[in-house]
Write a protein that binds this DNA or RNA. Structure first.
Lengths: 349, 349
DNA sequence: CCTTTATACTAACACGTGTTAGTAAACTGT
DNA sequence: ACAGTTTACTAACACGTGTTAGTATAAAGG
């Protein structure tokens, strides 16, 4: 025996009113002269029959889905951003929930050109799209936005007109570098988080570079080594730096995960952190509180990013004028033990 | 100028056929004598107009949403399970995608009694529900399944009739403990991952307990200390064990994150891992490859779990007879360096 | 030439809802 | 007693689709 689904017709019949009345009552339409008695009767039978208005019906007539699609690229650097992504998701969930929206999750394989994400809006799966971890070129996103369809990107697309929300990588890198300068270091290395053509990598480099110059320190190309997302690449990069005849006394590693590898490299030579080499990371991954010494790092506002990107998308949907179509969120230096000096513990909550 | 959405009526008019024909062609209905010429014309105009059939319309008439709802509890132990959860998500995404299904994400706050998850099916948001991280009691899930609605749980509900898919925590704990026994340890401690009333915690305890007995080793209550998800609690627990007059030579820590704290405790006393104390963890969190020494641990089949739970839910939806309504997935011992002995590197890919 | 059969479609209903325009009954004012 | 107003509803349309039953035309068979 299969349970038939309950419709408003059934509720209407059972309550002895018309289907219109049921709809009017349940949607709390104002200025309709329905007396308390009837209203109560409708609500009571609806509850008794466990009636839930069919969402496809409503969407069809209203033309809106009350849904945001979160599109994830299945990219290779995911390992590094797992924790980050889940935090973003929580922020996004919070806004959508506050606005009575739902979240549809959708992964996209960039290598498979056949399926993009535009159909999510065209076919009425969602009212807006949030694109996480965009590639360097996203022509589909550009086209969607050109057609005035609500789409927002986490991270940013250089030279392409699409609204975005991003963490201020440049500022974060400056915070990290300035911290080391403030502690008296004059030879400061950089291990990047990724190849230069990744925008975030480039911005972190620039922050590092500009901080040095503002402090009157020389920029030394040989102190910059490229890593590539993984801990292993960080270990190798640090070895390159430690092999220099004049090795740095401090290194800004532009990714926590990469930094973990870098720290191994230092310890394997029998050197101490921060006495021999001071380290600042980037991302504030959960694990940075569990390595030894606790890693001083730059916290990315992951939750806020999720919130803001959702907020912006909702504003586009509702045709409200957003304060800005491009949002930079501030980062925060979290001082722990890996640089010595004024080390607090940097753990809160 | 707002772009009107394209409907099948428009395609029909433009192609000079009826709406029915458009539908027949686009859905590839067999045994309808539509000649290649017409078929081509319809497909061409549909593509030209960028027509995407409205999903609410289809759902309304078909009665199926082709969507699974993934319901997440906003529980406090999330910090420990973040990475795990994302892996589950990827597995789930893979099955759903393979079956042309979508995933709707929904968090539920267990403290707010007002909103459950049943409405997701009743209101036609999804055809089935996957409940992640269930509480000890889930009356709503039980009721849904009683009404023959498709719902599957990750983890399991003791004494409640709901289909579930879970990792074999008992087997995993045995693998960990047996490994230590095989290496010659005879005093083996246990630090639990959570209080005993968590089922997973209880099962890991039992696996440890039974392994000792099968090996003819005594079970010593004083060697079991309870931790509670966090690294800090692991540090405290390990201190308790190290303060014993006859301290263990090896400890099975039933959670990697907890184990990281436990390892700190050992190093802070100037002792070495694994020479003074050997450690086995549980979960195979990404970070277990980055701590020093690399942590030997038990890998949970997170991706498979996501796949299987989705698979089972889809079978319930399609009224197929599933092989089993309760699925236990095997774990895998990953041997790295924290126990010494036959240590391989345990890194693959 | 008439009947049968295959071809190439289409008219019309159903899915479940929100909403506008309209109506019958009751009540009011003079 | 009758027009005018308020009260308490409801009939009917629209949203966009899948699908069944049916039809007009052309071809085939005798």
């Amino acid at each position: 025996m299969v349970k038939r689904r309950v419709t408003s017709i059934e509720v209407a019949r059972e309550a002895g009113v018309s289907r219109t009345t049921v709809s009017l009552v349940l949607n709390n339409i104002p200025d309709t002269g329905i007396p308390e008695e009837t209203r109560r009767k409708v609500l009571e039978t609806a509850a008794r029959l466990n009636y839930h208005p069919n969402v496809s019906g409503r969407r069809l007539v209203s033309g809106r889905t009350h849904t945001l699609a979160l599109v994830l690229h299945q990219s290779s650097e995911r390992a590094a951003s797992d924790h980050f992504l889940l935090q973003v998701l929580r922020g996004l969930d919070a806004v959508t929930r506050a606005n009575d929206y739902y979240v549809l999750l959708r992964t996209v394989d960039p290598t498979q050109a056949q399926d993009g994400y535009g159909h999510l809006i065209y076919a009425g799966y969602a009212d807006g799209i949030i694109l996480s971890g965009p590639l360097l070129e996203e022509p589909e996103a550009v086209e969607l936005y050109q057609n005035r369809l609500p789409i927002v990107v986490t991270g940013r697309l250089p030279g392409q007109r699409v609204p975005w929300v991003d963490a201020d990588n440049y500022q974060g890198a400056q915070q990290a570098t300035n911290h080391l300068i403030r502690l008296g270091h004059r030879r400061i290395g950089l291990i990047t988080n990724a190849p230069r053509y990744y925008l975030a990598s480039q911005q972190r480099f620039l922050g590092y570079h500009d901080s040095l110059l503002s402090a009157g320190l020389p920029f030394d190309e040989s102190l910059v080594v490229e890593a590539c997302f993984t801990s292993e690449s960080g270990l190798a990069a640090m070895n390159t730096l430690l092999d220099l005849t004049r090795r740095p006394t401090a290194v800004f590693v532009a990714s926590d995960v990469v930094a973990f590898g870098a720290m191994h490299a230092i310890r394997r030579r029998g050197w101490a952190i921060p006495q021999d080499v001071a380290i600042v990371g980037f991302d504030d991954v959960a694990m940075s509180r569990y390595v030894e010494p606790f890693l001083t790092t730059v916290r990315l506002p992951a939750y806020d990013l999720g919130w803001e990107v959702g907020q912006l998308c909702l504003q586009l949907i509702n045709q409200e004028e957003p304060a800005a179509l491009e949002v930079l969120l501030p980062t925060e230096l979290v001082i722990r033990a890996s640089c010595g000096g004024e080390a607090g513990n940097g753990n809160r909550e």
